[in-house]
Design a protein around this nucleic acid. Structure first.
Lengths: 224, 224
DNA sequence: GGTCACTATTGAACATGTTCAGAAATGAGG
DNA sequence: CCTCATTTCTGAACATGTTCAATAGTGACC
């Protein structure tokens, strides 16, 4: 998190300071309560300075996204070593992803509202979010690639993105989940994975290829 | 739309005036551009007056919801007379629902952002939205009740709400749909309905009852 | 060390939804 | 037609993210 203090120019140090203070504040106070004026005040600079280094508040959220997804990757990779079962590997990516979000659950409605618009720069499907998004897509890609059971090659291209979309939908459910320890989200994920495991052999049936292909095509086009 | 002018006290007329101007503005300018000051100005009153009659901007959105869902009902009911096939009847409710939203597609991201938070008063799942929400749930209930094929009675209670949630998810897809005439949303709906029609006979199989029941239970608890 | 283009910083200004103390209007009871 | 409590209305105030003209600082080149 703390961005290599010491070296770097004055400007880079100011930028890093603002970034670190903003990220800490997002964690502690959420999106709404993290105001530009508060960040500026804690960093000992003026409002204009924060907006000079980060053109908007949402640019700071992108820094947060990157941080969260890098930790997602760091948490998932070692666990992916432990199994070569496709469904289990997907479960690892989903579960470690949710685990990263958990500290933010209190503030999830605020972030959701700011991010859900297709026009928002912090929409996970926006071009501005591509760097952090690709980390997650990459994880799903690796989960598939390292699995013992191979899927038809025609699915390889779109499937990771579709799974990332599934992860976003799961996160949407998670935002609305008021159960203790997000127990209902866990149950939904477990049941979904069990269903997937049961129906996976069917993918190889010729009759199912076409409807699946069509469904995947529809999903693949979803973007902000 | 226009709220019985003429009769009614001065206060009621002011309230109706503000309401009508707000609803027209939502349609023409969307959520963001419809500012309280603009409404007040067009109504020839002060900012404080609009907030006296409608405690918040979102209270005016509730008026819009009600208007839209009443038209949804008016559009769906006659078409429900034309078929007693369950899946076709559900299709009527879905399609007439989307048709009501269509004029707002330009502004859908704004409305989505304002409504998606579980803490928002205009969240369709909030208690504040219950009146308009129940119109939609009622439509699904009637679609089921008037169908020739009867479902197991145990589903009757939760299914209409679950279908309403499905409609919300479809609307989410619709918000992100950039295709000409929302052609992709139509296709998704058609394919979903076809799939439903094919799998409906399976509902009567004992083995599927429990997983279905569990799924429905998870879904039924989703609320804002 | 002086010059000067570029980089970095400042804080006032703007529009937004909402609040609220106070002013004005209303209308029921005499 | 008064009285006066209640209802209705007003507009200034607040906090928010963002913009921008003006100022200050920095550092490369002579």
């Amino acid at each position: 998190m703390s961005s290599s203090v010491g070296t770097a120019t004055k400007s880079e140090r100011t930028r890093a300071l603002i970034r670190d203070i903003a990220l800490r504040s997002f964690r502690e106070r959420g999106y709404d309560q993290t105001t530009i004026r508060l960040i500026a005040s804690e960093a000992g600079v003026s409002v204009g300075t924060t907006n000079y280094h980060f053109a908007s508040k949402n640019d700071l959220v992108q820094e947060l996204y990157l941080d969260v997804q890098q930790q997602h990757r760091a948490a998932a990779l070692p666990l992916l070593e432990t199994s070569d079962d496709l469904v289990e590997r997907l479960g690892v990516v989903f579960r470690t992803g949710l685990a990263q979000l958990e500290p933010y659950h209190r503030f999830a409605p605020e972030f959701l509202s700011a991010a859900v618009s297709p026009r928002s720069s912090i929409n996970p499907l926006s071009s501005d979010s591509s760097e952090s998004r690709e980390i997650v897509v990459g994880l799903f890609r690796e989960a598939i690639a390292g699995a013992a059971d191979k899927l038809p090659a025609e699915f390889d291209e779109d499937l990771p993105s579709a799974l990332m979309l599934g992860h976003l939908l799961l996160a949407l459910f998670w935002v609305y989940d008021t159960s203790e320890g997000r127990e209902r989200t866990s149950r939904l994920l477990d049941r979904g994975l069990r269903l997937l495991k049961l129906s996976l052999p069917l993918v190889r049936l010729r009759v199912l290829r076409k409807p699946l292909r069509e469904l995947l095509d529809l999903i693949a086009e979803v973007q902000a």
